[in-house]
Amino acid sequence: MRILGIESSCDDTAAAVVVDGRHILSNIISSQLKEHAPFGGVVPEIAARKHVESIGEVIEKALTDAGLNYNQIDAIGVTARHGLLRSIVVGAAAGKALSLSLNVPLVGIHHIEGHIYSNILEHGDSIRFPHLCLTVSGGHTLLLLVHALDHYELLGRALDDAAGEVYDKIARYLDLGFPGGPIIDKLALEGNSTALDLPRPMLHDPGYDFSFSGLKTAVIRQIEKLQRAGTPIPLADVAASFQQAVVDVLIGRILRAATVYNLSTVTVCGGVAANRGLRSALAKLAESHSIEAFYPPLPLCTDNGAMIAGLAYHKIMSGAVSDLRLDAQANAPLGISGVIYK
């Protein structure tokens, strides 16, 4: 079954064709980084404007790269939940029009569920259930117990800023550019991760929630202290120390949950899953605690249509198909209750 997946929940306009939930024929992502960079973050209205301009071209490119025409598509998967509402509606409208036009099934997908699926899309049956999944990006930080597709248990979440959001804010404060994640990750390679004494918020608190806002404030205060003393800001050391603090908290939470729930499979997904510091720490954790750790390849870390198309296949196989009245929601629970099916 050839499924066209459409994703427009934030600032990437994406479309992909995936066969039988596993084989990626194309994966097109139109980035809006240039448009948002001057503002140091994603501007919802600008994102929505760019989506409507790009959506047609991205879909056509996904078909061309897959070597298919419209009539060879068997179903449409489209992000309909969780993200910027005015962005989601553009992709959802396009998906619904395609479903009507091609007379093929339509499946509304939850954006977070798509990210969770990105590891299964890449690694297939190597991902065993139940497993622990850290979904971490600029919009969310969630620790989930994944019992099965459609069956998720939320263990912890960011109570304030998402991890990726703090990267962006620190980068903006230091005037490093946007997005902050890759820039700080690169700088951190050259810095001393113990140069700044930074807190590890909530690391030893009970439960599995996260809080990164205090860490952000601590970094800014230390920079201000250096500025008052007339000391040049050691950017690489700041980046390395900040990144180490974030990674310590994320890895600490993963280890605790894996131990308490006796899980030996851990997946990490979302934009921050591309972070080299996190990947390196995860590899060490896996080695030292006999855990199998998985993360997607870089094109599947960022928002993409392939994860939406891949998951849509499983939804269709389980009979979960939407109809043309599918709506869009900025916030929705994960799982079957989050997306309207017939």
Binding site: A48, I55, V90, A93, A94, A97, S101
Partner: peptide, 19 residues
């Protein structure tokens, strides 16, 4: 009304492109 305009235009674009 911008959101409605975008929904309308995205819809008619794909209808026109596919047919």
């Amino acid at each position: 009304a911008w959101s409605s305009l975008r929904i309308g235009l995205a819809t008619v674009k794909l209808l026109c492109m596919t047919n």
